[in-house]
Simulated scan of single mutants.
Amino acid sequence: MEKQNPAIRVHGLRKSYQQLPVLEGVDFEVAAGSIFALLGSNGAGKTTTVRILATLLQPDDGTASVNGFDVVSQPAQVRESISLTGQFAAVDEILTGRENLVMIAKLRQVPNPRRVADDLLERFGLTDAAGRRVAAYSGGMRRRLDIAMSLIGDPPVIFLDEPTTGLDPEARIEVWQVVKNLATSGTTVLLTTQYLEEAEKLADRIAILHRGTIIVSGTLAELRKLLPSAKAEYVERQPTLEEIFLAIVGRDKTAESSQGGQR
């Protein structure tokens, strides 16, 4: 069987702001139809990576392609292939859920915008709230609507930049289910997160980004092999992703805090 090309390919990616290096040679690949988690603390370079892949920022060096298109030389084709959902839901609170979806469908010149809106409302469990103003939605409902809006036009690749920031545990679980469903339907998902449990629950593969470099990458099972199993009363226990992360990255936050906030 012929090997499928990765949906996202990043090699030697570098980016600095003035004299401050943010990315220092980032390398990873994301298989089509999979969920890939870019895990790291605030300031690790996660958002900078996503902004480069979304053609919102130019890299200083290295190469990156999305859906087979180079982010520097073919930005228009990349933009047609992706959707980006940021850390906060980009929805119009004055409009209803259906009106938000219809508006985006019209802007993207999608045929039958009302039918598209109704299909997405049903898919994301928002049909009963379709006629309500978004201002009355819960945090989880807003985020589900935001992700639904990003899927209009059926982009093969979606970037979710810390999609559960500020959500309560119940809303976070709602979003997790939505992300799982995206991958099941064939959408490639690149998820950035600082929540260890989120990466552990969702991702097919996890890359830990620390001080601008991918220091380890693999499946959860592969990462677990980096640490010995803990044994208590002769019962073997696999290390959690939190234990792996802390063992690899360490607890030293001094250098990171000096770099400022989220990049």
Rank of each mutant, 00 (worst) to 15 (best):
E2M: 10
N5Y: 11
N5K: 15
R9P: 01
R14Q: 07
S16G: 02
Y17W: 10
P21N: 06
E29C: 07
A31P: 02
A32S: 15
I35W: 03
F36R: 04
F36H: 11
G43M: 06
G45K: 12
T47F: 12
T48A: 12
T49Y: 06
A54F: 13
A54D: 03
T55W: 13
D60E: 08
S65R: 09
S65Q: 10
V66P: 00
G68A: 09
F69T: 00
F69A: 13
V71H: 07
A76C: 04
G86H: 02
A89G: 03
I94H: 12
T96V: 07
N100L: 11
V102S: 01
V102C: 09
I104W: 07
A105N: 03
A105T: 12
K106G: 02
Q109Y: 06
N112Q: 13
P113K: 08
P113F: 13
D119C: 00
R123N: 05
A129I: 13
Y137I: 09
G139T: 10
R142F: 00
R142W: 01
R143S: 01
R143K: 12
D146S: 09
A148R: 00
M149N: 04
G153T: 05
D154N: 14
V157D: 04
I158D: 04
E162H: 08
P163A: 08
T164L: 05
T164C: 07
G166D: 12
D168M: 09
D168R: 07
D168Y: 12
Q177C: 02
Q177I: 09
N181D: 15
L182S: 07
A183R: 06
A183F: 13
S185Y: 05
G186Y: 09
T188V: 12
T188E: 01
T193M: 02
E197F: 08
E200V: 07
L202V: 05
A203W: 06
D204P: 00
R205L: 03
I208K: 11
L209I: 13
T213V: 14
T213R: 15
I214W: 04
V216D: 00
S217E: 14
T219G: 02
L220N: 03
L226A: 06
A230N: 08
K231H: 11
A232W: 14
V235T: 13
Q238C: 04
P239C: 03
E242G: 01
I248N: 01
V249L: 05
A255C: 01
A255P: 00
Q262C: 05
